[in-house]
Design a binder for these strands. Structure first.
Length: 619
DNA sequence: AATTTGAGCAACCGCTAGTTC
DNA sequence: CGAACTAGCGGTTGCTCAAAT
């Protein structure tokens, strides 16, 4: 026995494994628990003597009670310090016994009545995550994994709700799984959502819209209807190694990998159409935290999407300008037409803390990043929901045709940073200005009824244009069609990775099955709403009073920085046009909120933004 | 064989929000 | 109405273990 135990480094490990055994064999009924306890104590006692109680010191330096203490309530914690760190089987037993007797709830009473030196919260977590008899142990099954992906595509980071859909699984478990999966797939350069999930979610969203959810204009339901909940799931991108050197000072103080993880081309696509501005990139900057009930996550976006914008009149045909709009904040494009979401006095309404009424002193995006899932929003937003193809999807799209342009190898997103990618795309856009002109002229946002009637035409013209494999966006939209169809196993890993001129690109196996958009108005509509450049509609292009004020701010803020170019740009904005500068100024304004914490950050960001714009204008 | 690195997991923290008293 | 309690969330930390170096 001692040999067996000595092979296990920590008694908590014993407890862990024993707990599994214990539950598997002893939890047929709650009444079966207690007879097992002596065995638990026996093993742990031995492990302590053989391995010492090194782990009894918790990380905060509080002496943890020994097993005996925990078991006997020697360090009850009612007056003494509460124990932290891994739970022992003895503690588990105490907790289980307590819950068996008294039921769940009133967790703070556990400590008082059972002598367990754990806070109520810890007890609750332990019970919920490990001791509940209905918990499923072991790794997720493929089916569960598939389900998690699906659910995440619909719900975002609603771990508890996801857990509710997966019997026996806990939110923490799912969260850990998801985060691990994200990391793994990011490392592998894979899209987070498998293509079929993308398509499925988009389809579901569209179906729901067709059922009238979005026309109800009722925000009360969106929290109950995950699919319609435009909640932005958190997607963590911490470990992607791309371009860290270049951006380590980081634009906007966003962890560089997080920003860069947003595929440059998706930024570009957004940039190509200012309507894309408000959400995917910026929602990453302004992640949703939990919001409940009637809260509208992005009221300004809400307003923006449904506004009518004359087509083709207000977008400067300068790709670089438009690109910069990728960085604009939602608030910049909010003309507050939605009475349900009155204009905020803050010009940075995209900021989560503002939206949620929180007065966090720190911008939410300093520490949190989320990417949009495939969710759409409906309800109070009263707008056609925009089933966002995940950025990961776009990411994959980018990689689908890596050799279409030889330049992509020298300046591909894979090998260069965001700025490089932007510059690269700018160059391409210059080369295909005619194309982009045509494209952007269609890039305006119109209300859903208009969209309905025009979607067909839009598709025929714009979509084809996007499908041009030579155009800057050609590969994107084209491959999106392919992408959504060509999936095999959603969990498939890439078949191969090939290197083209030093650029590592993932090879996607694509079955060239064309979508019949034209024959299916629903699908066509879906296509339009799914299009990245449609998704982030903005009403900023309709000048109003707010706009005028904004533009005046622009001039003030950017004049000294950019001189003639920007001044010209701002003048255009005075007449209703918009500009990259607008977004950047807002970034600067946003950055001012950082100043409280770090003038250095602000300085860095000013410089970075300035450099960015200068690069744009000089490409 | 020793060390390093990274994945996976459990647990915690800080916070917000809902519910109950 | 406010306090206490609880649930939930996002993020983080620390640990173990296995693979890589």
């Amino acid at each position: 026995m001692s040999t067996r135990i000595s092979s296990i480094k920590h008694f908590s490990v014993i407890g862990k494994y024993f707990a599994e055994f214990w539950w598997d064999w002893s939890f047929a009924s709650a009444g079966d628990i207690l007879p097992v306890l002596p065995a638990v104590f026996c093993i742990e006692e031995m492990s302590i003597t053989s391995e010492t109680g090194e782990r009894m010191i918790s990380k905060n330096g509080v002496d943890s009670p020994s097993v005996e203490e925990a078991g006997s309530g020697g360090n009850s914690g009612e007056n003494g310090p509460l124990k932290k760190g891994p739970w022992t089987s003895a503690e588990d037993a105490i907790l289980v016994e307590y819950v068996t007797k008294h039921g769940e709830g009133n967790w703070n009473a556990v400590q008082k009545h059972s002598g367990l030196a754990r806070c109520g919260k810890s007890c609750r977590l332990r019970w919920a995550n490990h001791l509940r008899p209905d918990l499923k142990k072991g790794a997720f099954t493929p089916e569960e994994e598939r389900r998690i992906i699906e659910l995440h595509a619909k719900m975002g980071n609603k771990w508890a709700r996801m857990a509710a859909e997966l019997p026996g699984r806990t939110d923490n478990e799912i969260k850990n799984y998801w985060n691990t999966r994200i990391k793994r797939r990011q490392r592998a350069g894979l899209p987070i959502y498998p293509p079929e999930i993308c398509f499925q979610a988009v389809n579901e969203n569209q179906r729901n819209e067709d059922l009238g959810t979005f026309s109800s204009g009722n925000a009360q339901h969106h929290d109950f209807s995950p699919i319609n909940n435009f909640d932005i799931p958190a997607v963590e991108f911490k470990n992607l190694e791309l371009n860290q050197q270049l951006y380590t000072p980081t634009l906007l103080d966003i962890p560089p990998t997080s920003l860069l993880d947003i595929p440059a081309n998706s930024l570009l696509m957004q940039g190509l159409n200012p309507s894309y501005t408000g959400k995917s990139v910026l929602s990453s900057f302004y992640p949703s935290k939990r919001f409940r009930g009637t809260e509208s996550l992005y009221p300004s976006i809400n307003a923006s999407v449904c506004d009518v914008v004359p087509s083709g009149t207000q977008y400067p045909n300068d790709g670089s300008v438009q690109i910069a709009q990728s960085f604009a904040l939602p608030s910049a494009f909010d003309n507050n037409s939605n009475s349900e979401n009155p204009p905020s006095s803050s010009s940075i309404r995209g900021c989560h803390s503002v939206l949620n009424g929180n007065s966090s002193s720190e911008p939410a995006w300093v520490t949190k990043l989320e990417l949009p899932s495939l969710q759409t929003r409906t309800g109070s937003w009263g707008s056609p929901s925009s089933p966002l193809p995940s950025l990961e999807c776009v990411d994959t799209l980018i990689q689908t045709h890596p050799t279409e342009n030889t330049e992509s190898c020298s300046l591909s997103r894979q090998n260069s940073g965001l700025l490089d990618a932007v510059l690269y795309e700018s160059q391409i856009m210059k080369n295909s200005k005619n194309n982009s002109c045509q494209q952007t002229s269609h890039a305006s946002i119109m209300p859903v009824d208009v969209m309905d009637t025009l979607s067909h035409d839009l598709h025929e013209t714009q979509w084809e244009a996007y499908g041009d494999p030579i155009s800057p966006l050609g590969h994107s939209s084209l491959s999106f069609s392919e992408y959504t169809i060509s999936s095999r196993n959603p969990l498939d890993e890439p078949q191969s990775v090939e290197t083209v001129s030093g650029c590592k690109v993932k090879e996607e196996v694509v079955e060239p099955v064309p979508m019949q958009y034209d024959d299916n108005s629903e699908t066509a509509n879906l296509t339009i709403f799914s299009r990245p450049d449609f998704l982030l509609a903005s009403n900023c292009f309709v000048p109003n009073d707010d706009q005028t004020r904004e533009n005046s701010l622009l001039k003030d803020a950017f004049g000294p920085f950019l001189g003639e170019d920007l001044s010209r740009d701002c003048k255009q904005m005075d007449s209703g046009a918009t500009s990259s500068a607008q977004g950047c100024v807002l970034l600067l304004k946003q950055n001012e909120s950082i100043t409280v914490h770090s003038q250095r950050k602000q300085k860095d960001m000013h410089q970075l933004t300035l450099n960015y714009l200068q690069n744009l204008f000089t490409v």
